[in-house]
């Protein structure tokens, strides 16, 4: 397959859009969180101001850090987060790099920011960061299994019931909404899978109740502890873009409906309406998966988080998988 040159043109546009949207959604997140705590809260553009400030601050590299690892990890985290967005349907467009990778690749790419954080933490030479990095790895090992079960079940369902060639391709999944492929039993199963995915979301994004790797009040920002200035700005950007990427993935798997399916529109109006509708869907997923959760709960201890993700969450995902398989094979 030869590389299409229009893709090369679109990649920077998509990356910048992703970063701007990530910052914007972080602003909404902080504002809504403040409103829920009966505060006025920062202005929505606050993340942009913070970013601008961090870029003009001094960038300190600790003396006993491994310098090239310490400096490269924020870049790797950010680029991996942006790369995920190029593989999932975004703003109503099909994935930019469809044909070059599929759902399995997305699964691995989503792992890279967390790994980069852990490696960056270990390389910084601070004990707080080491503790944070270990916690990050433990957390990753806990939620990754439930997450994979959700993804694989959906791919299996698509192979079994829909006549598409590549079941792991996100394009085929977003063309055939999963809800139409199942009976009542499978529908309940899919609901459970969605619930499991939403429960995995805070851990994947490192937000409360699973922000144990950062845990500001106990291990002084954990993996971030030695990062400052430009590197810190890149890390925060990576987290913001990862939030958008993960929400887009949830939308692509479970809510791939386009606005034009409900209201017939033509031309540029249809494109804009689809893009806005997509953003609304992403916002709804973020609201229930992250914003609403992180103002309502306290932090897990790392053993509690591991137990929760290996226990109840995994059980929900497995029951969902069993119901979907039962409904598909017998029904």
């Amino acid at each position: 397959m030869t590389m299409d040159f229009s893709v090369l043109l679109f990649v920077p546009v998509f990356s910048i859009t992703a970063i701007l949207l990530g910052l914007f959604f972080r602003g909404i997140d902080r504002k809504l969180g403040a409103k829920m705590q009966a505060r006025i809260g920062p202005p929505i553009i606050q993340p942009f101001i913070d970013l601008k400030k961090l870029l003009m601050k001094e960038n300190i590299v600790p003396e006993n850090a491994i310098k090239w690892v310490f400096n490269s990890m924020p870049l790797i985290a950010l680029s991996a987060s942006i790369l995920v967005l190029l593989y999932v349907p975004f703003l109503g467009f099909p994935p930019l790099l469809s044909g070059y990778g599929d759902l399995i690749l997305v699964l691995y790419l989503l792992m890279i920011p967390a790994l980069a954080l852990a490696v960056g933490g270990f390389s910084s030479g601070s004990t707080y960061a080491s503790v944070g990095a270990q916690r990050e790895l433990v957390l990753m090992m806990s939620y990754e299994f439930a997450f994979s079960i959700v993804i694989v079940t959906i791919a299996w369902l698509v192979t079994k019931t829909a006549p598409v060639i590549n079941a792991f391709s996100l394009v085929s999944i977003s063309v055939v909404p999963v809800w139409g492929l199942v009976g009542v039993m499978g529908f309940i199963g899919l609901l459970l899978l969605l619930l499991a995915l939403m429960l995995v979301m805070p851990a994947e994004l490192g937000r409360l109740p699973a922000d144990i790797a950062e845990a500001k009040t106990e291990i002084a920002d954990g993996v971030f502890v030695e990062y400052s200035g430009r590197n810190l700005a890149l890390l925060y950007l990576a987290l913001d873009v990862r939030t958008i990427a993960f929400s887009s993935l949830v939308v692509a798997l479970f809510f791939p409906f386009a606005f034009t399916e409900f209201v017939p529109l033509q031309g540029i109006v249809a494109v804009i309406a689809n893009a806005l509708f997509f953003l609304v869907k992403v916002f709804i997923v973020m609201f229930f998966g992250s914003i609403f959760v992180h103002v309502a709960v306290a932090r897990f201890r790392v053993d509690q988080a591991a137990r929760a993700y290996w226990g109840p969450v995994l059980l929900i995902a497995l029951i969902g998988m069993a119901l979907v398989m039962w409904g598909t094979v017998l029904g």
Binding site: R30, A34, I40, P42, I60, D221, V225, E226, Y227
Partner: peptide, 18 residues
């Protein structure tokens, strides 16, 4: 919430590096 300095962008951080 009563004084809410976060509305001015002021935030308590956990490490002097930030």
């Amino acid at each position: 919430p009563r004084y809410d300095v976060e509305r001015f962008g002021i935030k308590l951080v956990g490490t002097p590096r930030h």
